[in-house]
Design a protein around this nucleic acid. Structure first.
Length: 271
DNA sequence: ACTATTTCCTGGATGC
DNA sequence: TGCATCCAGGAAATAG
């Protein structure tokens, strides 16, 4: 499931591979629940546009589109949902099941959006228009970070997943960050002491940086723009390790459900 | 104004 | 072996 480090990896890969290329034509499938803009608007906006940059904003990818002369045209905003992939393919390569959009590039290659579960979202917006719902977790100002949780009765786990507070953290990195900070996921956000929030802030920085370094976590079917897997799943300390010994103290990792999401923690190391 | 729950989706894992 | 059921979860919608 693509969270911040996976989306960052994919966006970097796409930027490197198709940055500067021009979209010649676009095919869009009939599964309209993926589209936040009308299919015709997406097609019209993409066709003839130069992809100036691919970049990450929260868990979204933004492709900055320009005219051939470089004048800004629009933004193509992509959310990968759970199982979305944006692949750079050879024009001749076989079309994967659940391919919902194909953008044919001047170079002869194709950008293909594939998403079996269809939780992904595609949208076009005016240039510069897209904004993340919350603040960027990487490099977040400490005091602003602490203020995000003030007065919130919701479990800290839910607060971390709330994209209106921080944009980019999902289930894996919420669990991993809370483990490193020594905080139980069910703790009410407002009950965390300043020192604990500082520890959590540091843990998030650490976890996200290490995960990006490893190319993301390949659980389920995540691969980057080149089709390569990431390796951070090998460094998960609690996520999907229910019943296995804590790497610090040996206690069995517990799994509970918070806000409908499985949450993993060490009952000894996390308080 | 918040918070909690439900819904959307398919494929892989599990159970009988 | 085969079929049904469960489970994964990001975020919008709905309910409280």
């Amino acid at each position: 499931m693509p969270e911040l480090p996976e989306v960052e990896t994919i966006a970097r890969g796409l930027h490197k591979r198709v940055g500067g290329d021009v979209i010649e034509s676009v095919w869009i499938g009939d599964k309209s629940n993926l589209l936040k803009s009308p299919a015709a608007d997406i097609a019209r906006t993409l066709e003839g546009a130069r992809v100036v940059a691919f970049r990450r904003v929260g868990k979204h990818m933004v492709a900055d589109l320009a005219e051939r002369d470089g004048t800004p045209r629009a933004q193509w905003v992509i959310h990968l949902g759970m199982t979305g992939r944006m692949l750079v393919c050879d024009g001749q390569s076989e079309q994967a099941r659940h391919t919902h959009l194909i953008a044919t590039l001047e170079s002869g290659r194709e950008l293909r959006f594939v998403d079996p579960r269809r939780f992904g979202k595609l949208q076009v917006l005016p240039s510069e228009a897209f904004q993340a719902a919350g603040s960027e977790p990487i490099g977040a100002d400490r005091e602003k970070f602490i203020a995000l949780f003030k007065g919130r009765k919701t479990p800290i786990k839910s607060a971390l997943l709330n994209q209106k507070l921080l944009s980019g953290i999902g289930n894996i990195y919420a669990d991993e960050s809370l483990f490193r900070a020594g905080v139980r996921p069910r703790r009410r956000a407002a009950s965390l002491a300043r020192a604990e929030l500082l520890k959590l802030h540091a843990a998030i920085q650490e976890v996200l940086a290490e995960a990006i370094e490893a190319g993301g976590s390949s659980v389920s079917d995540y691969v980057d723009a080149t089709g390569d897997a990431g390796y951070f799943q090998l460094q998960h300390r609690v996520y999907q390790r229910e019943g296995e010994p804590c790497l610090v103290c040996g206690t069995a990792i517990k799994r509970v459900v918070i806000a409908g999401r499985s949450s993993h923690y060490c009952p000894m190391c996390q308080r």
